[in-house]
Design a protein around this nucleic acid. Structure first.
Lengths: 150, 150
DNA sequence: GAACCAACGTTGGTAGCACCAACGTAACAC
DNA sequence: GTGTTACGTTGGTGCTACCAACGTTGGTTC
């Protein structure tokens, strides 16, 4: 019988990177499961939400804002366009660019996925009080902001 | 011209899952770069550190403790054994099992990688004070602990 | 002790995220 | 005009995290 502890790599379990990795991994799992009901993935939501909130943009711009590589944006936009959630049109002002816009169906889907996202947040942060959630958000935001201006 | 903000997906940037994903992703990048100097990856370190600290164990046990799938343990142990960092021996008491032990070289490598890990932690948590680091650790640990007993 | 089930190691496959190099086209700077 | 930059696109790579299936072995139950 394996009566060993379920999980806890000795010295690792106290390191920030381990904790971040594990919690993010868990959050990702929850999110994937939630998004699977929409038959879409994380990349799709990032793009769709950005389009729905900030309006049309070029693919390169979207990639920059979502932290997604240009080449990965292509595939994701292909998927979204194939479902009529998004429209790809050449930019008349700059023929290198495509202007990507969310359709009405796309905006709807963005809203639905946003609701799923919120549900997942609550699920994820269940054990934390409101002030603790804010604390966590603040700390992570500081980390991210610090490292973003390398 | 793209004078748009460098990164910040509208409503996403305040969600815990997004922040966790991004910070963990960044931590993973730092860690990968650090471990690359040892020509090993995250899986290898998890296993090696667990072996060095907790002593020999079966592959299934290791996988459970490190949160790595049994099938992935096989490949990682193959790598480690191929470099003489680890020894795979049949368990005389249970012929289904292999007993994996860290060699002296493996223990050394675990120490070296541990130092790399520590350096990365400091790098990652640079903008946070000691008490803030503890806060973050505590919050993440609570999240993890809560979700581990689903 | 025979039958059954659970655990082990292993093979081989899948998916998602992240990232990179290279190309042709188009815009911009000089 | 020429050189440089940005754009979209193609076609890769690597790491992490899974899952299904198989043959072998151990333990349990009758």
């Amino acid at each position: 019988m394996d009566n060993a502890a379920p999980q806890s790599p000795a010295g690792l379990s106290t390191t920030a990177s381990w904790l971040l990795n594990q919690t993010a991994s868990h959050a990702g799992r929850l999110l994937s499961e939630g998004f699977a009901a929409h038959d879409l993935r994380g990349y799709h939501y990032r793009l769709l939400a950005t389009l729905a909130e900030d309006g049309p943009a070029s693919q390169a711009d979207l990639g920059r804002r979502c932290g997604i590589d240009r080449s990965d944006v292509v595939a994701a936009i292909n998927d979204l366009a194939g479902r009529g959630l998004v429209v790809r049109a050449p930019d008349p002002a700059d023929r290198r660019r495509n202007v990507i816009s969310a359709t009405d169906a796309g905006a709807d889907e963005a809203r639905r996925m946003g609701a799923t996202l919120e549900r997942v947040q609550d699920d994820l942060l269940a054990p934390l009080s409101a002030s603790e959630r804010e604390q966590l958000t603040r700390l992570l935001t500081r980390l991210l902001h610090h490292h973003s201006r390398h």
